[in-house]
């Protein structure tokens, strides 16, 4: 990102990974999560939910670092982030 340098001990740091869960029927399409995701993981989709809003969709799932900002900003309790445990990551790798 543009605002900070790469940490000097980047090799030793373990970057957490998260998995996003979107409750689409509860979403009101405000776009707070899309606007403030520091990694640009989300974007508003073209599909409609039953209220006529466009819920967000995950476009870069591998970028999510489980910062929870979308979850705390969401006014409708419609998105949350679950940390992917390390064992699963090792299996993936």
């Amino acid at each position: 990102m543009a605002f900070w340098r790469t940490p000097l001990d980047i090799d030793k740091l373990k970057i957490p990974k998260g998995e996003l869960h979107i409750i689409k029927e509860r979403c009101k399409g405000c776009g707070f999560c899309v606007e403030y995701c520091p990694k640009g993981v989300l974007q508003l989709s073209d599909e409609f939910n039953s209220k006529g809003y466009h819920p967000p969709e995950v476009v870069k799932p591998e970028e999510c670092v489980n910062c929870d900002l979308c979850e705390v900003l969401c006014p409708d309790f419609a998105i949350y982030c679950v940390r992917i445990e390390e064992e699963e990551e090792e299996v993936d790798n």
Partner: peptide, 13 residues
């Protein structure tokens, strides 16, 4: 839930 507040209202946050 869902609550009655408008889309982009700050109350839910």
């Amino acid at each position: 839930i869902p609550h009655i507040w408008c889309s982009t209202c700050g109350l839910g946050t």
